[in-house]
């Protein structure tokens, strides 16, 4: 009958459920949410693309004149499984997982992390 005691006790305590859109639980420090790439640090080695289990990373050429060093990762978040292997593989610590986790969208294109064009390369 100890359940009944707890039942009556719970009538007068606050419910544990979070009213989600109004209340949000902060994620833990090590939480892996959306991927963030620091393209300035990136050297274009392509280790992240090689190790990605979900083939979410593709190396695209943005500076053809630099050869293999001119590639940068293009990350498709809709394929990403948030395992964090790219963060481990990156020799320059250019990839980080930030706490943002509400990634639902109706526009699939917004889930592509496209590397920016380098400043000098824009042709007239």
């Amino acid at each position: 009958m100890s359940v009944i005691k707890e039942l009556l006790k719970n009538l007068f305590t606050k419910p544990i459920t979070l009213k989600y859109p109004q209340e949000r639980k902060p994620p833990a420090e090590r939480f892996r949410g959306r991927v963030y790439v620091d393209y300035d640090k990136c050297i274009g080695c392509g280790l992240c693309a090689r190790d990605c289990p979900a083939s979410a990373i593709e190396m695209v050429v943005i500076e053809p004149e630099k050869g293999i060093r001119g590639r940068r990762p293009l990350i498709d978040l809709s394929r990403c499984i948030f395992c964090g292997q790219c963060e481990l593989s990156c020799p320059r610590k250019a990839i980080k997982f930030i706490h943002e986790y509400e990634l639902a969208t109706s526009d699939k294109k917004s889930l592509l992390l496209i590397p920016p064009k380098p400043k000098g390369s824009q042709k007239p």
Partner: peptide
């Protein structure tokens, strides 16, 4: 509502 509150939930909301 009472059932939910006994289970520490919010119930209809």
């Amino acid at each position: 509502k009472v059932y939910a509150r006994m289970q520490n939930r919010i119930g209809p909301f």
